[in-house]
Design a protein around this nucleic acid. Structure first.
Lengths: 335, 335
DNA sequence: CTGTTAGCGCTTTCAT
DNA sequence: ATGAAAGCGCTAACAG
């Protein structure tokens, strides 16, 4: 059914030249007489020839493909980041092989192995959950790696990250400044670097006011709306004194918001809520969510650019830290 | 820096067997003595050998990669669909090469050409904007194609689509039944098949009530929140009699919602709004959006499964039509 | 059960 | 400016 494809040899034969000459034409090498080039181009056109990148990759040892490993493409944070990365890759002639790990460590490892077998030219790894003693050796086999939201030594990978600590700090600090002392933390996954940093920032903000974070008011949870909802319900029922909620991300915060509504707690009157990420959602919930904003698209683009640099041996920068920006909306009281 | 990778020949040498034997081991062929297999496995382990899929693909003519062409990965509709497709692909040993067309026809064509050169085993093409006289020939070069939300003859591609006509019909019909006769349409991109179908359904619902759709109350627009906002502002200012808005999708509807709020028009009191897609957003805006719901993840999964079937020459089904489900929430009055 | 010989479609030398 | 020969790393086909 699929008649075998036209190859460079077919083109060469029809054009009465060697395959080498055809190769030179499709690669825009200079040393070709313009008549020969035209003749070859005509045949290519007529035959509908498309060079086989698989064959080309085998000899050049370049696939012009980068691997993008993310926990969940359905999460707006990562889909926007993907948008930025794909855009930059495309502009530079690279493709993106998507690996969605579904937040599973095993699948993350399997993805990395698979990308190695695919001989991608580089990898962008987002929010990895693998322990670094296992992770770093896995990364050695790639020509270049950039990690998003997780630290790494420059030899192992470039890093693009949010200043999570500062984000967590300013979230908690703001709530404290508007008089909310009974803070609780919906802190995201325990294994998440950014989760721990945000929490640490929050705890530090309390310490700065002479307050101690209560472990019973710290809940780790999956970075999802449902989880935020569940934890918030439980937390607020057990401990009605809580009047401020610092959430790992907007998804969790939106869940918490729904929990408050359901429990009849006014937001921000009874409970103030701060999210993280500034996804589209947070602008349109009721009340709109105060949150720490960063441009996901820009982050993805920055990661891709850094990766391209590293792939070419240029290491302009080993780390890019993006400062989150506290956006005040309806879920927190004004100053 | 990158010491050249270990190849099948290295393994063969170290294990004292032929490359063929190694090949048999890594491909789990039966005819191997278990001691030889173990010896080879040990060497593979020790050397950290990973088979080169590029080389393998060149000979087997299979890349175990499928191309996914979508207008915008940052759009939750497509990112959820991608999630479903990637999941099914992964389960079956396939990878997804992502091509984000940024809603540009030129980039869509370029993506298709690129996927052809990459020799992907199949392509899922979503919401293509290319004219079919141009598109269908482009698709011929693929072993298998599935189109999402756009019709195609079974020879050219399998189809997974929403019943857009019915969706548009029931949206308009519901509004008419609750007494909203002054309907306007924010109809999405002119070139979008689904946009036209939804509009056609809406117009038909009016016709069924003896009403005629007013062209001045039909606006085509990009499928984005901002566009919905802009068009709704303009539309409602010019024509304050409008009391029902049938929107191409939820993004547009959310924009329209914001426009109403800004113009001081009560939703659903003055203007009722229906969206399409049931993205997460629609559940959390104020008031929550009535919309036509379909499972995007399931759609993606269905598309991937259909593609795998077609790649293997099985054509169980040429078309899957998913019925949208009208979900009534706060943006429309009750019956 | 295992090895040998070709060859996938292209680019990289090295000639001419 | 063009061609011939070799080889990228693997598997298919056939021997043995």
């Amino acid at each position: 059914m699929v008649e075998s494809r036209v190859t460079i040899a077919d083109v060469a034969l029809q054009a009465g030249v060697s395959t080498q000459t055809v190769s030179r034409v499709i690669n825009n090498k200079a040393e070709i007489s313009s008549e020969t080039r035209q003749r070859v181009l005509d045949v290519i056109q007529r035959l509908g020839y498309r060079p086989n990148r698989v064959a080309r990759s085998l000899v050049t040892q370049q696939t012009f493909t980068i691997g993008l490993v993310i926990p969940d493409i359905a999460n707006p944070f990562f889909s926007e980041l993907t948008r930025g990365a794909e855009d930059v890759a495309w502009e530079n002639g690279y493709n993106v092989l998507l690996c969605n790990t579904v937040e599973k460590e095993e699948r993350e490892k399997a993805s990395l192995h698979l990308l190695e077998e695919t001989r991608v030219d580089g990898v962008i790894l987002c929010s990895s959950r693998i322990d670094q003693n296992e992770l770093f050796p896995l990364l050695e086999s790639f020509r270049a790696v950039v990690m998003v939201n997780r630290p790494a030594p420059a030899r192992v990978a470039g890093v693009v990250r949010i200043d999570d600590f500062e984000g967590g700090f300013s979230a908690a600090n703001y709530l404290l400044r508007v008089g909310r002392q009974e803070l609780a933390f919906l802190a995201g996954p325990v294994k998440s670097f950014s989760g721990c940093e945000r929490l640490r920032g929050g705890v530090e903000a309390m310490k700065a006011q002479g307050l101690l974070a209560d472990p019973a008011r710290t809940r780790f949870c999956p970075p999802k709306r449902q989880a935020g909802y569940d934890e918030a319900i439980d937390l607020l029922k057990r401990d009605p004194a809580i009047n401020g909620l610092v959430c790992y991300n907007d998804l969790v915060a939106v869940g918490a918001l729904q929990a408050c509504t359901e429990l009849g707690r006014d937001v921000p009157g009874d409970v103030a809520i701060v999210g993280f990420d500034d996804i589209v959602l947070s602008r349109v919930v009721c009340p709109p969510l105060s949150t720490l904003s960063i441009s996901k698209v820009q982050m993805g683009a920055a990661a891709a650019r850094m990766l391209l640099d590293r792939m070419q041996g240029r290491e302009e920068q080993d780390e890019i830290v993006m400062k989150p920006n506290l956006v005040l909306r309806g879920s927190t009281p004004g100053l």
